[in-house]
């Protein structure tokens, strides 16, 4: 079966960040890095959170020099403990779905000068690759999907992809049919 993934519908997305914060909260609760794994992205063509597509032949997993990224249980996962923060995965990801980050412990005040997220670091803080893990450590699925107030986010399961592709084939028949008809006229 194909890997599952979460994707947003920009026609519904309000850019309200509820998913982003839910993501962060869920991972913090699981003892993982609390940096959010989806990124609200604004463009003149629409706004939506962007996150990992859990590619079947994931380039991030291929380039990882320490095998910290593995494909298992229908998803692409980063082992935060093994990651060395080399950034190769973030660069090869075609969707910009991987960021390098580490969590600011809440007890430490944030540095006054604003810092770029790619370089946000503190002494003693581990900076690793952060990406969507479909909230595999929580019992009720991806938290972003759960909290989205407009239901713009959807979990697409592997078998659902196959069904969608079948539907696409049906509609492509109609398209080809009309093109050939036009040709014949």
């Amino acid at each position: 079966m194909l890997n599952s993934f979460v994707i947003a519908n920009p026609n519904r997305c309000l850019g309200c960040y509820t998913c982003v914060v839910a993501c962060s909260a869920a991972h913090r609760k699981s003892g993982l890095q609390a940096a959010p794994r989806l990124h609200i992205t604004y463009s003149p063509r629409g706004t939506m959170p962007v996150q990992c597509r859990h590619c079947e032949d994931a380039p991030c997993a291929v380039v990882c020099p320490v095998n910290a990224i593995e494909i298992r249980d229908g998803m692409v996962l980063v082992k935060e403990q093994a990651c060395i923060g080399c950034k190769m995965c973030a660069l090869v990801c075609p969707f910009g779905a991987i960021t390098m980050n580490g969590t600011f412990p809440p007890s430490i005040p944030k540095p006054a000068g604003q810092v770029q997220s790619l370089l946000a670091w503190l002494a003693g803080q581990k900076t690793v690759a952060i990406k969507c893990d479909l909230c595999c450590s929580s019992t009720d699925g991806p938290q972003c999907v759960k909290v989205c107030p407009t239901k713009a986010l959807q979990l697409i399961a592997g078998d659902q992809v196959e069904r969608l592709i079948k539907l696409k084939r049906i509609s492509s028949v109609a398209v080809v049919d009309s093109i050939l008809n036009e040709e014949g006229e």
């Binding site: 309200c16 839910a22 909260a25 107030p149």
Partner: peptide, 9 residues
């Protein structure tokens, strides 16, 4: 049954 980011967090 829905809330936004400030409502939840």
């Amino acid at each position: 049954g829905e809330l936004c980011v400030k409502g939840y967090y």
